[in-house]
Simulated scan of single mutants.
Amino acid sequence: MSVADAAELFTIEVGQNANRVTPDLPTFMRPFSGEDGRNLYDSDARFHDAERVGALWAAGALMQSPVVNRPGPFGFSGRCMPSSSLTALSCGEFDGRSEVYFRNIPAGMGIDSELIDDIEQHRFVSSSSPDLGVYRSRNTSRLAGYYPVAVVGQTCFPCLENSRLLSSLAGRSVEVMGKLELSFAILFWGILADDTAVLAGVAPWPSLPQFGNQGEAIVDCLVGLLCDPS
């Protein structure tokens, strides 16, 4: 269902003693604005888009039924920030790697660069990449690789085959989710040479291809989360 259709589905009543959302039903929201391809420079279109997203935020925050990643004071993504460093800082996982900002891609920065943009966005793959600035990067020279862990409620799923790493990261992943006020996300752990891990990024609204071969199990767990009245 589109953002526009979903916003028109709910009615929100605010009373002195209680608030009510109709219909009040288990909800999985993926709120993306600008979905209709409207002109971003059209002030009326942007206003209507913001109003629809605001209505969805209020409905998700106020309804009594289970909501995956229930909207809160910080928006639809818990305490996640656009900056991976700030996200790590907000959940006690900051590893000291500072971010570097570029207006343009530095000359000569190619596919082997040690600088990488936030894990959810793009990599520096060519020094001839178009000038889209501003680029935000962190040094990854210490990392031997990445290990994504999908978390649904209190259950963790390995998006790559390595049960040894999952067993060492499961409890830590659930703890991070609690601090970020999320019930569903993929955590990207950067793995060091000694198999210790640092939080590289968080995807609070992951896509199906990111689940690896765990897609069916993750979907089943999400359905269970939505059916849990607690």
Rank of each mutant, 00 (worst) to 15 (best):
R97C: 03
V100W: 00
F102L: 04
R103S: 00
A107P: 02
A107R: 03
G108E: 04
M109A: 00
G110L: 00
G110V: 01
G110Y: 03
I111Q: 11
S113G: 10
S113F: 01
L115F: 09
I116P: 03
D118R: 01
H122P: 03
H122G: 05
R123I: 03
R123K: 14
F124H: 10
V125C: 02
S127L: 05
S127T: 05
S128F: 09
S129I: 01
S129Q: 11
P130F: 03
D131Q: 13
L132C: 11
G133P: 11
G133E: 02
Y135M: 08
Y135L: 03
S137I: 11
S137R: 07
R138Y: 10
N139S: 12
N139R: 08
N139K: 06
S141M: 01
S141C: 04
S141P: 00
R142A: 04
A144R: 00
A144G: 02
G145A: 07
G145T: 04
Y146V: 11
Y146D: 08
V149F: 11
V151M: 05
V151F: 09
V152F: 12
G153H: 06
G153T: 09
Q154R: 10
Q154D: 08
F157R: 04
P158E: 08
C159G: 12
C159W: 09
C159E: 09
E161M: 08
S163T: 12
L165G: 01
L166S: 07
L166V: 07
S168A: 13
S168V: 09
S168R: 15
L169V: 02
A170G: 05
G171P: 02
G171E: 10
R172N: 10
R172S: 08
E175F: 06
L180R: 13
L180P: 12
E181T: 11
L182S: 12
F184I: 06
A185I: 10
I186R: 14
I186M: 09
L187F: 13
F188H: 15
F188Y: 11
W189T: 07
G190F: 03
G190M: 03
I191D: 02
A193S: 05
D195S: 12
D195C: 01
T196K: 04
T196A: 02
T196Y: 03
T196G: 01
A197E: 08
V198N: 02
L199W: 14
P206A: 08
P206C: 11
P206Y: 15
L208R: 15
P209Y: 15
Q210L: 13
Q210S: 15
F211P: 05
G212S: 15
G212F: 14
G212Y: 15
